[in-house]
């Protein structure tokens, strides 16, 4: 078997590895097939039925569930496909809280993208019976909101929880039109086994799962999570001198694009009003604010008296390589002792 399979999509010959779905092969070659429930990090399930394509010699089928085959001839659009797709989309839109202005996902939303690509028959939507969208928003979690009125039931969150986090704390519940994503006993998410890793939130294609207090960053910087020893790659967003967001770096070799609750949502400590902002010096028993010059000369003068075995440094595993290097160098070269250790054993 050759390493690549050759097939034709919309008249273009493309190559794809065996086992690749038509959808992902097309997307990798910049051929857009509208889709909703497929996510590159997760297994495909073929439930949104939006990515229908025509394959020569077969009935129309969903491209996300059909592996490429040698010589396959695929067309991604024709009148029949588009009609089926458009009706599908109109039904979704009708059952969706379409108040985009007030949605955190506005302009990042997959449903908006589909709508732009496929188009809607507004008259037909008006002719349909609009349901009452009155599901209460689940705001029980301090870091994210769950709004079933915006949910498209694509199941990406369910699969993210199962395949990335591994805890399987959410699933489809109920049947028919009542179908929603819920936890055991259909309780608020906070009463579930959810650990707020946010793997679902970050993958939600619409505004059903959104971070609370979401602020759009003005710029983002690649760095490493400041918490445990896993060393996950994070992309930290800032705005106005404050840290406002954190997302996983998809191809981070240590974390492979995953994060836990701390790395994704727990960076708020940096913005805490209780941060130390100036040196403090104890004067008459109280710690009072001081300038760097005063603090440095005081410390230098005092430490100068304890060189040798009367002095010790306790360095920190929360400080960088460079910080630690300088601390041990200072201890050894300036203070003349090997009395340095840190919290490695705690």
């Amino acid at each position: 078997m050759s390493e690549f399979i050759t097939l034709t999509i919309d008249g273009r010959e493309i190559k794809a590895a065996p086992g690749t779905s038509i959808l992902r092969a097309a997307l990798a070659n910049d051929i857009y097939i509208p889709h909703l429930c497929d996510h590159k990090d997760l297994t495909s399930v073929g439930i949104c039925r939006v990515c229908l394509v025509d394959i020569e010699g077969r009935r129309p089928t969903v491209s996300c569930m059909t592996p490429v085959e040698e010589g396959m001839v695929v067309s991604t659009a024709n009148e029949e496909l588009e009609q089926t797709r458009r009706m599908n989309l109109e039904l979704l839109v009708l059952n969706h809280d379409y108040d985009c202005q007030n949605c955190a996902q506005n302009n990042k939303c997959q449903l908006q993208e589909l709508t732009r690509f496929i188009g809607l028959d507004e008259d037909r939507i008006k002719a349909m019976r609009a349901p009452e969208l009155a599901d209460p928003i689940d705001d029980s979690n301090p870091y994210y909101l769950r709004d079933m009125n915006r949910c498209v039931r694509c199941g990406i969150c369910v699969r993210a929880c199962e395949e990335i986090q591994g805890d399987e704390c959410i699933d489809f519940v109920f049947r028919g039109i009542e179908t929603r994503i819920g936890v055991l006993g259909d309780k608020p998410i906070i009463d579930s086994t959810c650990t707020t890793c946010g793997e679902c939130v970050t993958r939600c294609p619409v505004g059903a799962l959104v971070p609370r207090h979401a602020v759009e960053p003005t710029y983002e910087v690649e760095t490493v999570c400041p918490f445990c020893g896993c060393g996950c790659g994070i992309l930290v967003g800032a705005r106005g001198g404050k840290v406002v967001s954190s997302t996983a770096i998809p191809d981070s070799p240590s974390s492979g694009g995953s994060l836990c609750v701390k790395g994704r949502f727990g960076l708020g400590f940096v913005n805490s009003p209780r941060r130390l902002t100036t040196p403090l010096i104890r004067k008459e028993g109280k710690l009072v604010e001081a300038g760097w010059d005063e603090a440095l000369s005081l410390v230098a003068e005092k430490l100068g008296r304890y060189k040798g075995s009367e002095y010790a440094t306790i360095a920190s595993a929360k400080c960088n390589v460079e910080d630690n290097y300088v601390m041990q160098k200072f201890t050894r070269a300036v203070m003349g002792t090997n009395n340095i250790d840190h919290c490695a054993r705690l």
Binding site: N320, V321, A344
Partner: peptide
């Protein structure tokens, strides 16, 4: 901790 390995490596 995020740099416990590094702190050891650095001779702290």
């Amino acid at each position: 901790q995020n740099n416990v390995q590094g702190s050891c490596d650095m001779g702290s």
